[in-house]
Design a protein around this nucleic acid. Structure first.
Length: 139
DNA sequence: TAGGCCATCTGGTCCT
DNA sequence: AGGACCAGATGGCCTA
């Protein structure tokens, strides 16, 4: 049951853990890489014009959609649209990391432990939920 | 220096 | 048509 997390010995850590309080030495903004998010809001994505188009792949072999069986259409976008898509993707990843951070705060860790990676966070959360479920079912 | 982790870019696919 | 989601590629940073 607890073998999901090979690199975290949950049973061993339980007696001494606080549910909250992993040190936040390393927030989402770990490398200052999100400093530009402020400027993201300033960028008017609506300026991405719609003079772009879908075009049939002009290459020799046009691939076929696995789901529809129709020929795949290559989506051609302008550099402005590409930039806007990059910004949206950064925002999306930012909110994903915010969710990881809030999950990190919910799973028990030793205060001195280094920040959990995303995969460690997910695995520990799975084990933690299973552990708590086990406790509830045996009471 | 190798390996792990992460941010970012990019193109494909799905959905509205 | 365009945004959301996803996965692959790439490069930087950090640690053992």
């Amino acid at each position: 049951m607890f073998d999901l997390v090979s690199d975290v010995d949950f049973m061993e850590m339980m007696p001494n853990t606080s549910v909250l309080g992993p040190k936040e030495t390393h927030s989402t903004d770990c490398n200052g890489l999100y400093q530009d998010l402020t400027s993201i809001h300033a960028l008017d994505i609506s300026t991405a014009r719609s003079n772009d188009f879908y075009a049939l792949s002009s290459s020799t072999a046009s691939p076929v959609s696995a789901s529809t069986g129709k020929p795949k259409r290559k989506r051609v976008i302008s550099s402005v649209q590409r930039q806007a898509a990059n910004i949206r993707e950064r925002k999306r990843m930012f909110s994903l990391n915010e969710a990881f951070d809030s999950l990190r705060r919910k799973v028990p860790t030793f205060a001195y432990e280094k920040r959990l990676s995303r995969i460690e966070t997910l695995r520990l959360a799975i084990v933690y939920i299973a552990f708590m479920t086990d406790i509830l079912e045996n009471n």
